[in-house]
Each structure stands twice: as C-alpha cells, then as structure tokens.
Design a protein around this nucleic acid. Sequence first.
DNA 1: CATGAATGAGGTTTCATTCAT
DNA 2: TATGAATGAAACCTCATTCAT
Lengths: 210, 210, 210, 210
Amino acid sequence: MQRAIRTYSKDESLVSLRRAHIARCAARVLASKGHDRATVRDIAEACAMGAGTLYHYVGSKSDIAYLVAEHGMTEISNSWKKVFSEGDSITATEVVRRAIRAQTEAVDSHQDLILVLYREMARLDSRSRRLVLETEMELAAAYEKLLTRGCDAGEFSIQDIPMTAHNMLVVAHMWAFRRWFFRRHCTLEEYMTRETEMILKSISAESSKE
Amino acid sequence: MQRAIRTYSKDESLVSLRRAHIARCAARVLASKGHDRATVRDIAEACAMGAGTLYHYVGSKSDIAYLVAEHGMTEISNSWKKVFSEGDSITATEVVRRAIRAQTEAVDSHQDLILVLYREMARLDSRSRRLVLETEMELAAAYEKLLTRGCDAGEFSIQDIPMTAHNMLVVAHMWAFRRWFFRRHCTLEEYMTRETEMILKSISAESSKE
Amino acid sequence: MQRAIRTYSKDESLVSLRRAHIARCAARVLASKGHDRATVRDIAEACAMGAGTLYHYVGSKSDIAYLVAEHGMTEISNSWKKVFSEGDSITATEVVRRAIRAQTEAVDSHQDLILVLYREMARLDSRSRRLVLETEMELAAAYEKLLTRGCDAGEFSIQDIPMTAHNMLVVAHMWAFRRWFFRRHCTLEEYMTRETEMILKSISAESSKE
Amino acid sequence: MQRAIRTYSKDESLVSLRRAHIARCAARVLASKGHDRATVRDIAEACAMGAGTLYHYVGSKSDIAYLVAEHGMTEISNSWKKVFSEGDSITATEVVRRAIRAQTEAVDSHQDLILVLYREMARLDSRSRRLVLETEMELAAAYEKLLTRGCDAGEFSIQDIPMTAHNMLVVAHMWAFRRWFFRRHCTLEEYMTRETEMILKSISAESSKE
DNA sequence: CATGAATGAGGTTTCATTCAT
DNA sequence: TATGAATGAAACCTCATTCAT
C-alpha cells in the first residue's frame, strides 16, 4: 500500500529500499530534534546521503514524516497483532498479560518512533496524523474486545470498557514518554509486571465477587 | 526569584507586570501553534504589543517559553498544594480522591499550558525543562508521602510506591493529552471518578488482607 | 487600484512608496537578466535593500514582476492617452503622426520596461500577462477608432483596419526590440518620422483616389 | 563548420546524427517552456534519451541552445536563399512579393524555432546570439540589395533602404510573435498578401512620380 | 517607553552535471 | 555506448533580533 509520493527515480524496488532506509534513519533524527528543528540536511546526513539524493525518493519534508509514520506504525502494529489472535485457548487475564507485555516491548524497541509519532503529532500533516490515530484505534478496539470477553467470562468487572482499554494503551506509551523517570527507577521487566498487575487488580472480578 | 533575563527596561515592577501578561498571552499562542511554528510576531500580536516592545521585557524567544513555563507551573502547583496540606484529619484514601480531583481539575483549566509544557518540552531550553520537571517531582513526592501514610495506616497495599505516585500524575495529564478521545467519551466528572476508583481499587489493601 | 499582495508592513503609504521604488529598480534588473536569471537578491540589491526587506513589500517573486508590469503599463499608457483625446480639431493624419510619436517616445523612455513586459511575457504569471495584453488592446482600440475616422473622412484607404492598427503598435515596440539595429542606424527622431511617413503613405487615400 | 563542443563520443557521424535529433526535439521543449524553465531532463526525455546520454553529445545546457539555433537558422535561411537568387528575370516588386511570402511561410512552419531564437535571445550565450544575428543580417543584406535594384529600376522610391529592409524582416517575424492576435484575425494567406501590399504601397514610386 | 522597518542567516527545494555500472 | 543515481550549489522565502525614530 505505497502512498503516492512524487519521486524522481523510476526504479520501484530501489525506491522502496531507500524509503525504508530513510524511514529508519529519519526516525532517529526526528526523535532527537523534533520535526521543525530537524533540517532536511540533518536527515539526509543521518541517511548518509546528499540532500539532493534524499529528494529523489521523497517529494517534501512532510513526506519524510509520513514515511516514518507509515514504516513505524506497520512495524509496531505487527508486534501485537499476533498476540490478540491467540484465540480462546487461554484466559482473558492471560491474554491481557501477554498483550501489555507485547505492546510495551514493541514500544521499548521503537521508542524513537513512539516519541516522534505522538509528541510531534501536531506538527505532522493530516495524512500522517490520521495514520497514527487509525492504528491506535485498531489496537484500542482489540483491547475492548478482549476486555468484553473477560467480563463475559466473569474474569473482569469493568465499569467503562473503552476507558479501560485506553488506559492499557497508555501504559505502554508511558514507558516511552516518561523514560526519564522509569529508566532510573526500574527495569522494563519490572515495569511491565507491576503495571500489568495493578491494572489486573483494578479490573479483577474477585474482590467484588466476595 | 526572578530569573536573569536581559531586559531593556529598568522599572522592575513594570517588568513583572508585563511579563505576567506575556506569559498568559503567549501560552495561548504556543499551545495552538507550537513553539517553532509560533513566530515572535504572533506572540507579540497576542500580547497586543509591537514586536520591539516584547523584546524590552524578554531577551529572546526562549525566554518567552521560560516565562510561560514558570508562570504556568506556579499557577498549577498552587492548585494542588493546599490539598496535600489538609493534614491527617481524613483518611489517605480520601486525600487521594481529593488530590487526583484537584490536579485533574487544574489540568482541565490549564489544558493549553499542560500541552505546551509537555508536548513542547523537547523544544524548550534546558532551564525551562528543568523547571517543569522539578515541579513535577515535587508533586510526585507529595503523592509518595501520601501513599506511604496510607500503607502505614493499612489502607493501601502497594508494591512500588514511586511508580504508583507516577501513575497518579499521569491520570491527570492524560485528560489533557488524550482529550480527543475522552472528550467524546465522558465528562470530566466521570473521568475523574472512574479513574480514581480504578486506581484506588488497584492499591486497596482489602482484597489481599482477607 | 492596488492589487492584493500580501505584505508584512501595515503602513499603506510606505508600502506604496517602496513598491514604486521596487517597480522601477526591478525593471532594470529584469530587463538585463530576464525574470528567471534575475535572483531576488539581485533585485533587492538594485533596490538597495536587504532581501528580507524586499519581502516586506512583496509576497513573492511573481509579485515583483506584477509590480513592474502594473507600474510600467500605467506609466506608459498615460503617455499616449492624452494624444487620442485631442478631439477632432485636427485631421486624422495629424493625430496618427502625434500618436505614433507619443507612443514611440514613451517606448523610448521605458525601453527596459517594454523589453521585460513583452520578452518575458511567457514567464510572467497570468495576472501580469493579462494586464499587459489588456493595456495593449486598449491602445489598439484607440488606433482603430482613429483609423475609422480617417477612412470616413476620406483621408485613409485601408483594407484591414485592425491589422493596420496593430502594425502601428508594432512600430513603436520595434524601436525597443531592435534597438541593437536602429540605435546604430538612425536617431529616434529619424526613426519616428520615417516609419510614420511610410505607414501614412501605405494607407493614404490619394494614390488610389486619383 | 562543426562548432567545438566537448563530446564524449568519438564517432563523428553518430555525433552529427544525434545532434540533429537533439536540435529538433529540444526546439519543441525550449519553445514551450523557455530556456530556463526547461530542464535538461525534460529535453532528454523529448529526445527519448537518458540525461547521461545527452551529455555524450553535448557539453552543457548552453550547447543544446546552440544546436537548436544552428540547426534552426540553417533550415530557415535555406528556405529563402533561393528566392533571392532567382535573378533579374522578374521585377524587384515581384521578388519582394515572393521573398516576403517565402520568409513568412518559413516562419510559419518554424514558429517554435523563431519564438525560441528571438524570445530567448537574451538567455542564449553570446555564441548562439551571434549566430542568429548574423543570419538575420545576411537576410537584411539580401533585402537591401533587392530594394536598391528596385530603386535603380525606378520601381521603388525609398528614403532609407536599410530601415525598409528591416521592416520587411519584421513583417515575417510578427506572424510568429503576435500569433495570439493574428491567428484569430486572419489566415496566413491574407496576412501575407495584405502586409505585402501595404509595404509595397509605402515604397512604390508611382504616387510620388506623378 | 513603544514601535516596526530593516536585516541576513538559514531552511526547503530544484537541477545541471558527473560517473560507476 | 547508454543509463540514471548521486551530488551540492544556489534559488526562494521566513523570521528572530536590532535600532533609529
């Protein structure tokens, strides 16, 4: 699903190759400097290209942001899609554990990306913004479905499912957004476990059952 | 504790007055356009001043951001300081309820500010960044003290107090950051109540006590 | 009838003043280098301004061309308008003499302008192009009316009035376009007289009358 | 008389062949976009070549313009050379008729070329410019000789022969330059006839003879 | 004290030209 | 021989900052 970006080059496979390269390198630069502060020259340098060369594969600076968003969201969403599809062989509680874990790990290994995509959201053009939000809504919907299943199975007791699903998303994101705090406080492993257990406790059906 | 900002004017009281004005007006502009997209002229116009005049009270564009941060954090932190000082006359649980409520309401009425301060954090100079983080750490410390008291009193059962304190901070911020989601989903009142109860449930000592 | 050009400055009279200055100076540069070769810096330098300053009075490079066109066509058309309005007190033949003279003199004293406007026509944006053509059509119409009067009065014998009017326009323009030839061949005075008499002879009614 | 253009290729005949091809194709592009707006890539594409290949037969973009000028002027001047060489078997008046006709027809069938060569003259390098002017002067000289013969034969009465010769050149060019006017006003045939008769009337000896 | 005209550094983008394949 | 990817100079334009009025 390649987006229509004006290119100079005609060789489709080379274009794809270079764009993937650009998406990866640009993410680092955008993450560290932000969209407006990062100059096209900075990005080109990070890609080990001349500025002119960059423009053979990209029509404008906005397109770079879009490439980053597209490449990143694809990679990230791939990381958790499989978790939710594990079927009903295990309890909803266990799927929640795995889902939060998978998502947080994905966030951890794409921290730059997450920071760019969310922190810079306001600076992105509407096309990229939509892409990010759509991916997020997809994920939220998956969580909602899972929580509903857990409620039906009597595992969970939740007043507001969408909000709870949302909170779960946020748990993973916070690992990126507040790394300046968490990094000096605990390991990824500890973070995931503790946050997950707090969330599970907050939605567990047991305490109210009794 | 006036920061050392080069000014043109010598009249200290006028300077303070104008700076407060600038901080208030600039916040609006920075919130809507972001630090890099907002021009000094935009800001001056919002202040109903000539651009030259602005520079009598401010040494650089960065200083404006600093003023906004300083002014904003002061105002916000004032909103919650009194809650924590309510003393030991009520249960920790109740103080948590009031604190989250106070903080979320503060965030709600200073949404622009919150967005600027956090979203633009990377764009701010280190001086402003430090200011924001220090204020936040102050608040986190207050939460930690409160949670410790609750644990000592047997109200709470918490594995990782700093992390839990942090999560409480985040609850309030999310109301601003994810307003595009929450605003169409629930009222401020509902948001505060539900989130608070979830947090309380996740740290309540009862379920494990038994 | 000031055109809507985005400006930075708000002082209307200063804007007008500077724009007139820009129109005059830019015409020289555009004439000598052409629209594409002339850089904005070249033009700014010719205006004795910084490049940035130029952009306070002009929204884009195209606007500069438009200013030149507008300023020039106004000035040029003013030069001849009065000739045609001299009324019927003199013979059409005499008016033709005066009109060609007036127009050629106008062309002579605005050679740069004429060269820019016509030679660069293809490079101008449609707005400027329309302006030039409209002015020209106005002049052609005036010639046509004059020739018709001469025919009615029996002074002229013309097969194709619009074409003849057109030829008269061209006489004046050629003084600018082919100056590299005429300048070394004859004076302006000689040029005007000889060309005029040739034209008059070619449309005189006498030879055929007899 | 091949000009010294740096080439990559050594095969002289291939070079000539390709250059003729380039001259023809480039003329179209230059005519429609102008020298500065037309990119080397545009031209290469019109030649159905890669940009690199073009540079095997041409040293620079200026060289392309030169090729177009050279090729074009040769072709055009061939069109009328034979007319003037028809000798003294017919009256000068008749030769003028045929010459203007031949030249105007040549202009008509090479409009693109004429427009490029004259409109873009200022953009061409001095080498190409000289080439065009020399060809034009050759033609002017032929007209002058013809007019002189007509005067000697008592057919014409001309005050300024060079200027009149010049006017004759201009008649043909105007068909290209002002086609936006003439095309909607008359046919080529009508244009040639009417303009020619006006010129002939203006130089005819008859009216003054009497 | 207030103003806004002036400035020029620096950002994005284009394109003539080269050169490895 | 033919190609087109790579390059970087240079173009247009914006805007933080200064300073004369």
